[in-house]
Design a protein around this nucleic acid. Structure first.
Lengths: 235, 235
DNA sequence: CCGACGGAGATTGTTCAACAATTACCACCG
DNA sequence: CGGTGGTAATTGTTGAACAATCTCCGTCGG
């Protein structure tokens, strides 16, 4: 049980070692990532309700992977806060509470206005954002609630492209994935994503006009409003 | 090989299931978290140089865990970007490039000034930050380079407490952990963390005085300066 | 001398089977 | 009706096994 873990030579704490020569081929099936992806889809898609227990034996069989591989997938999803791991009890689809809503919006109220205020507005990113607005309008015209919600999430994710940081894009992706968990319990609510489209468009207009402070402040209000609306539905 | 994955009933996509009854005891040893923690220490502490290959067989033996458990730990560390996983080649201690430096600072230039500009300055957080400044000054007086670097990191981590968001605190923790990987290659540089102490103190003074915009802008300049300095050393 | 070729050995990706510890379920009993 | 005990199921972890892949090294040909 006493593991010394003496990998490095005592005389030279930082040994000069050459890293991964070249990140080449990656053909062999990566069961872990595939399993995690399948579960992610199911969870984000609302096919697995929050709180659902994910039995190792059952899911492993359904996904066609071994229990060990599935456990690695669970480890990934747990790090993404998509599932909760309760020791000796199992893995459960995350069940966001009111506290989680506040937590998520506390984060969004920093990074989204930050991206708007300090990001770099490349032509490419802006046109991308406008195309998302267009998709949202089309969805609204078609009365496609799911499409509106989806476009709204893509818009906020797209804001992170202003930062040029993969870290922030990933952080936002995970935040939005957690939000999706809640949406599926209330997506039937008519007009829930109603005027978001116009507010997003207005935000983008301000941003393009160089009125960043106004855009950021507007976004912060928007987020607080959305948070309050969400908290109402979570009680 | 064809896995249907038909857990949920087709008629009721969102099945009502009760979540984890109560997140109670957690006594049984969690080898995975312990192994990940040990490795995290070794990596962040600079005892494992960037690029070092982490052999499953060797590390598993040294940590006293099975190869499967170690793999779960690797999965955690990979999600934290502390190690790189190269398919069929192995796991390597992350080796930040110049691009990674830019990536990290692009993120920090958003969330840190965001926290300063929009966070809530509770008395508790402010005194905490002042105590970190104090520790930094003590370290500087003692000529303790490591202590200064450590206090500097604790300061920037402490800024995230202004946001009240665990997500952002965790994000910053991971960014700083990646930064540490680079520092160990250059920590001997005299005066590398020299005037950071005073700049942090000035930042905190501005924040306390309610001059948030000035504080945020000052922090952004500071971060760009640090980034440039770091990029010099990475070539 | 140098580079292509090839094969043996080591390492990773994944699975399976097993066991102790813990939990869940349920019948029994006061 | 509530506590109690026991059995079955589940999780945490291990060890061994196997195919696929990579690494290394010696050989051969130019």
């Amino acid at each position: 049980m006493t593991s010394n873990f003496a990998l490095e030579p005592p005389s030279a704490p930082v040994a000069p070692v050459h890293g991964p020569p070249t990140p080449l081929g990656a053909h062999r099936a990566q069961a872990r990532a595939l399993a995690a992806g399948r579960l992610r889809e199911r969870i984000s898609g609302g096919h697995l309700a929050p709180g659902t227990k994910l039995s190792e034996h059952v899911i492993a069989q359904e996904l066609g992977v071994s229990r060990n591989t599935l456990r690695e997938a669970f480890t990934m999803l747990a790090e993404e806060s998509l599932v909760d791991r309760v020791p000796n009890r199992g893995v459960f689809v995350a069940h966001p509470t009111a506290g989680d809503v506040r937590e998520i919006y506390n984060a969004r109220r920093i990074i989204e206005p930050g991206a708007v205020l300090w990001g770099s507005c490349s032509e490419q990113v802006l046109t991308g954002l406008w195309s998302v607005i267009e998709a949202a309008r089309a969805a609204r015209a078609a009365g496609d609630i799911m499409g509106m919600a989806d476009a709204n999430q893509r818009f906020h994710r797209g804001l992170m492209d202003l930062t040029g940081s993969d870290t922030l894009v990933t952080t936002m992706d995970r935040l939005l994935a957690r939000m999706r968990l809640m949406f599926h319990s209330m997506s039937t609510d008519p007009g829930f994503h109603g005027d978001y489209v116009d507010r997003n468009a207005e935000l983008l207009r301000l941003l393009e006009a160089g009125e960043r402070e106004r855009a950021a402040e507007s976004l912060r209000e928007y987020l607080s409003f959305a948070e309050a609306q969400l908290l109402d539905h979570v009680e």
